[in-house]
Design a binder for these strands. Structure first.
Lengths: 124, 124
DNA sequence: CGCATATTCAACCGCTTGGTTAAATTCAAC
DNA sequence: GTTGAATTTAACCAAGCGGTTGAATATGCG
């Protein structure tokens, strides 16, 4: 479905098992069998999970006899953080502008206040 | 399928149309019809997309007559960045340690280095 | 009330996904 | 060359997803 890498990365990490695999690979490279051990699914299922991570560019593999050690490619995370930061910052800026506007018209609060109900917490 | 919020958030953002909706909401609140306009899918499809974003906690809605303005809840992004930062840092630390090891044994590079079969369990 | 607008609900469809079992492949080691 | 371990491929299945059309539900306006 998703053809761009960011979609593939997000989709890959949307699965808790795959996130756990990534977490374990962050602690060190591992083989498919090693990775499969803790979960109560077949090793074939884990092999598929790893393929998804590999297609997303999150994991690379070398060869060691029959083994195919998996290695985490952490740089791909930047794709996500860049996307996130961009729109979070945008949203925060807008929020700040809204605050400014509200502050500007402090006294006369007769207008309906935009999104209604509350300005809520602005904390990060 | 995914029952935890992080899974829901990542899964929601794995769709390019939904990411675009989020991007537009970062610039300001909007109604379902407004959001649906640029895409060549039905408004019902967009309504479903918004529901997915809402279930993930990324979007909240107020009421304005028949309209249901959508508002971006940017704090949820923290869920992702926290997860990402944790494991990226871990991977980078490991990388730094590996560098140190390689530096340590500089002269004798006859061993096959790289991912080496030595890493694995124990972890931290 | 009757009508138009905005949104959702329901049923359906084709494709993908995560899982399975069974068979094939790759490579070391005997 | 046979055995055995690690991994992938193939075929299949149930469930979920993104899309559709069509009907229902709110709500403001004459």
């Amino acid at each position: 479905m998703a053809d761009d890498q960011l979609s593939r990365v997000l989709s890959a990490l949307a699965d808790p098992t795959r996130r756990d695999i990534v977490a374990r690979l962050a602690a060190g490279d591992a083989t498919v069998n090693e990775l499969a051990e803790p979960y109560n699914v077949t090793v074939q299922a884990v092999s598929k999970h790893i393929k998804v991570l590999e297609d997303a560019g999150l994991v690379s593999r070398s060869r060691d006899a029959q083994r195919r050690p998996c290695h985490l490619e952490a740089e791909v995370f930047d794709l996500m953080t860049k996307w996130i930061e961009r729109y979070r910052r945008e949203a925060e800026d807008r929020f700040r502008r809204l605050d400014a506007v509200l502050e500007q018209m402090d006294g006369r609060a007769d207008e309906q206040p935009v999104t209604g109900k509350s300005t809520k917490e602005e904390a990060s």
